[in-house]
């Protein structure tokens, strides 16, 4: 396992069996796959900034313009669905008080899976 800081031991625990139910569930959503991919550089980011990147990703893919409502929806999904779920799975460290998130320490297998998952067919945004 790589030493990429040591956010939580739970994370290591979860990812020592990287393809468990929680991991699959985390990776089942395109938005969550993109979120994880965007955080892979290890930087801590404001949740709003992450939302902007996800909205931009959608907009560039569809060649359309994203409106404020689009980002509000993404923010809602992040705060109420994705981030708690990924935090529980030990994949990110989400600080809901400060409104920031960063990737948890991942083993190479999980990292690779996230990198490859980004090209997977878009099937769901949830």
């Amino acid at each position: 396992m790589k030493e990429n800081g040591s956010q939580t031991d739970e994370a290591r625990g979860a990812l020592s069996r990287p393809f468990d139910h929680q991991f699959y569930r985390a990776m089942a959503s395109r938005e969550r796959r993109r979120l994880l991919y965007a955080l892979l550089d290890g930087e801590e980011r404001a949740v709003e900034e992450v939302a902007t990147v996800l909205v931009g990703w959608d907009a560039t893919e569809s060649g359309t313009v994203a409106h404020p409502d689009d980002r509000n929806l993404v923010l809602l999904r992040l705060v109420h669905i994705h981030l708690p779920l990924l935090d529980d799975a030990g994949l990110v460290a989400y600080d809901d008080e400060r409104g920031t998130v960063r990737i948890a320490s991942l083993d190479e297998t999980a990292r690779k899976y996230i990198e490859q998952g980004i090209d997977a067919k878009p099937e769901s945004t949830r």
């Binding site: 965007a38 990147v53 689009d70 980004i118």
Partner: peptide, 26 residues
Amino acid sequence: LFPGGPDPFVAVERDGEFAGVLPVAV
């Protein structure tokens, strides 16, 4: 932007409020 991520885009704020995203291609 990180490699493998979205194509370039521009995020717009108006009077401090998020106003939208425009793909650079557009």
